[in-house]
């Protein structure tokens, strides 16, 4: 009786495992096939592309890229602009979010509970909801068409703050701070030389997420930036859709999309360990 049951269980495990692998392989295909087609098409000439799809790469990748870089759309400049904005946002966001989290975590003061609850409440408010007031205020402050409205707001990032706070609760012993204080270290120095280094894993994860969010952002930059040379990559891509793309060299169109997508994929594959782990890290150690 019990033997029979075990045999049946083993069978069902084998069956379920087979189903699981089939579904996983199908999903893997569904996730990657678009990027495969993108890669193939970026390596083919306009004429080849017009004659239909083949699953094998062509020889036009370098030519397509060269045409793209020499074309009227400043893609390299766009990528540099995106890099500068996303890089500055990530640095400012993690530094000041950690500082905010340390204020709540490490000190006792009257408004502490109130401020913490308040930050949690505003976490869910979509940024688009205040976009109208935002662009009008930036206009009045003469900040339209500058990067300041795209970078500075990342200092007040409730989600990053919350992640840092969680991480501190689990990983920052109060005794260490106390010891440094007894040694006569100032509070700012304690923050910069003791808290920040201890927060490195959390900082790395949040820096990546903030960078990606800013890098991919289209809504706000599109409302703030007007000059061609200041535009970020997402704006340039949306403009590609906006233009009369049918008259375009399709090889170049695919090359531009590939130019926007593949560097991100490469960086992701290098950092995937931190990224996939980072989605759930922080509270695990509690």
């Amino acid at each position: 009786m019990s033997n029979k049951k075990t045999a049946k269980n083993t069978n069902s495990v084998h069956g379920r495992r087979a189903v699981a692998y089939i579904v996983l392989i199908l999903l893997t295909f569904l996730c990657l096939v678009w990027f495969y087609v993108l890669f193939i098409n970026a390596t083919r000439s306009n004429a080849q592309l017009k004659s239909g799809f083949t699953p094998f790469p062509g020889k036009y990748l370098l030519r397509n890229l060269r045409n793209l870089f020499n074309g009227p759309t400043p893609v390299i400049r766009g990528m540099l602009n995106s890099l500068v904005i996303a890089g500055c946002s990530a640095v400012l966001s993690v530094y000041f979010s950690t500082m905010t989290a340390f204020a709540i975590h490490g000190y006792e003061f009257r408004a502490k509970r109130l401020i913490f609850t308040f930050i949690l409440m505003i976490m869910m408010i979509p940024t688009q909801v205040s976009a109208l007031g935002f662009i009008r205020l930036m206009g009045k402050m003469k900040l339209t068409d500058t990067y300041i409205p795209l970078i500075l707001p990342s200092i007040a990032a409730p989600v990053t703050f919350f992640y840092m706070k969680q991480y501190m609760d689990a990983n920052l012993p109060a005794s260490l701070i106390e010891a440094a204080r007894i040694d006569g270290a100032g509070e700012l120095k304690i923050f910069n030389t003791i808290v920040l280094p201890l927060m490195k894993p959390a900082i790395a994860v949040q820096a990546i997420f903030t960078f990606v969010a800013s890098w991919n952002n289209y809504f706000t930059p599109n409302l703030i930036i007007n000059s061609k040379m200041k535009k970020t990559l997402p704006i340039l891509l949306a403009e590609l859709r906006n233009s009369d793309w049918k008259t375009f060299d399709m090889g170049q169109v695919y090359a531009m999309i590939a130019f926007a997508i593949f560097p991100v994929i490469v960086v992701y594959l290098l950092l995937s360990r931190y990224i996939v782990g980072g989605v759930t890290a922080g509270g695990v150690k509690e």
Partner: peptide, 15 residues
């Protein structure tokens, strides 16, 4: 693999 599309620029993915 399944997390990958999350990081792709939505405007590029859509294009």
């Amino acid at each position: 693999v399944i997390y990958l599309p999350n990081l792709i620029m939505a405007s590029a993915f859509s294009m």
